[in-house]
Amino acid sequence: MNERLHGKTALVTGSTSNIGRAIATRFAASGAHVVVSGRDVERGEAVVAAIRRDGGRADFVRADLDGSAAASRALAEAARRLLGGRIDVLVNNAGIFPASDTSTTDEETFDRVYAVNVKAPFFLTQAIAPMMAAAGGGVIVNLGSWVARQGLSVGTLYSSTKGALETLTRAWSSEFADAGIRVNAVAPGVIRTPDLASDEEYPGEAFMVGTPAGRAGHPDAIAAAALYLASDDAAFVHGTVLDVDGGRIGVAVVAEEAA
Rank of each mutant, 00 (worst) to 15 (best):
E3R: 15
R4N: 05
H6N: 07
G7T: 05
S17L: 12
I23D: 01
I23Y: 02
F27Q: 02
R39V: 02
E42C: 03
A46H: 11
A46F: 09
V48A: 11
A49D: 09
A49Y: 09
R52K: 15
R57E: 13
R57P: 00
F60M: 11
D64S: 14
D64V: 13
D66T: 05
S68P: 04
A69N: 03
A70H: 08
A71G: 08
S72Q: 02
A76S: 04
A79D: 06
A79T: 01
L83T: 00
V89P: 07
L90N: 11
N93T: 14
F97A: 13
F97T: 13
D101L: 06
T102K: 00
T105I: 12
R112H: 07
R112G: 01
V116H: 02
K119Y: 15
L124C: 09
L124N: 04
Q126M: 10
A129F: 03
P130G: 12
A135W: 10
G137F: 02
L143S: 11
G144F: 09
W146V: 12
V147A: 15
L152T: 13
S159G: 13
S160D: 08
K162I: 01
S174D: 01
E175N: 01
A179C: 09
G180R: 03
A185S: 14
V186N: 06
A187P: 02
V190Q: 04
I191F: 05
D199T: 15
D199Q: 09
D199F: 13
P203I: 09
P203D: 08
P203Q: 11
G204K: 06
A213I: 04
A213K: 04
A213L: 15
G214V: 03
G214A: 01
G217T: 02
D220V: 05
A223S: 12
A226D: 12
A226C: 14
Y228L: 14
L229P: 05
S231A: 11
A235N: 07
H238S: 09
V244T: 13
R248A: 02
V251P: 05
V251M: 06
A255Q: 00
A258L: 14
